[in-house]
């Protein structure tokens, strides 16, 4: 149902956001085809989370538009939210529920509490080594467990687009690799993934294309090689990142 539309993309045109005098995002242009994994890179406060929040419709753009599957993210945010699985940077969970109850709540609110969704949940929980903890109270979770539950919740309704803020932060290397392969499999099924990260190796390994944002402006976009070329022909992504950040 969700994957039939060939034109399913994530798209930003001149997308800008100001908070008072401060420019958080300045004229972002972006067009992501179906099945692409796109990494947003940038130093702290560069505008990565603002971009994701604009796509979620949490924030209203000062200028420009953000679209998902042709829907305006600011004006049709409810329809957008049906298509999107979202992972906030700080997993925000209801402490007095068990993991399973939280997933059930989110699925019910989406009208998606069906057996096939639960088999997806079982699979992703199993791969993250999280099956047993799913029946424990969230209040007792560690930061890593919270991140895992938030990821399971974001993936549960089989969304067509995933907006993930720092998906592998706080996870051990084994789980982080599982998460990467989960994302690659989803992308192979046609899911578009936008993730923000400041871990360059994660970005390089999992993302098809990267965008480097510095002070609200997109400084470079393309695969790792293209980003290096745009940064002045440096050899590694790290050097490119340093060069672009310093120039900004």
């Amino acid at each position: 149902m969700l994957h039939g539309a060939a034109d399913l993309v994530v798209e930003a045109r001149g997308l800008s956001k100001r908070f008072g005098d401060r420019v958080a995002l300045d004229g972002l242009d972006l067009r992501l085809p179906r099945g692409e994994i796109f990494g947003l890179l940038g130093p702290n406060g560069a505008g990565k989370s603002t971009t994701l929040n604009l796509f979620m419709g949490f924030l209203q753009p000062t200028a420009g538009t953000a679209r998902i599957a042709g829907l305006d993210c600011a004006r049709e945010s409810r329809a957008v939210m049906r298509l999107v699985g979202h992972l906030p940077e700080e997993p925000a969970l209801f402490e007095n529920l068990t993991g399973r109850e939280l997933v059930s709540f989110v699925l019910s609110m989406r009208g998606e509490d069906r057996p096939e969704r639960w088999s997806e949940v079982a699979v992703s929980a199993e791969r993250m080594g999280f099956t047993r903890e799913l029946d424990q109270l969230i209040a007792g979770y560690s930061m890593g467990m919270r991140k895992k539950l938030a990821l399971v919740t974001a993936l549960a309704h089989d969304p067509a687009v995933l907006l993930l803020d720092e998906p592998t932060n706080g996870l051990d290397p084994v789980v982080a690799r599982e998460v990467r392969s989960l994302l690659e499999e989803r992308a192979a099924r046609g899911v578009t993934v936008v993730l923000s990260t400041h871990l360059l190796d994660v970005a390089q390994r999992v993302c098809h294309r990267l965008g480097v944002i510095v002070k609200g402006r997109l400084r470079a976009v393309g695969d790792a090689g293209e980003v290096c070329a745009q940064a002045g022909g440096v050899a590694t992504l790290e050097e490119a990142f340093m060069a672009l950040t310093a120039a900004g």
């Binding site: 409810r78 049906r82 209801f94 007095n96 529920l97 068990t98 109850e101 709540f105 019910s108 609110m109 989406r110 009208g111 509490d113 109270l137 209040a139």
Partner: peptide
């Protein structure tokens, strides 16, 4: 079509009750 208001209300009510019961029991 999305879930109905009633279905969402039920989900919210169930979640609140579960939270209360879990909190007491835990």
């Amino acid at each position: 079509s999305g879930p109905t208001v009633a279905a969402q209300g039920r989900a919210l009510l169930r979640m609140t009750m579960q939270g209360v019961v879990n909190s007491l029991r835990h």
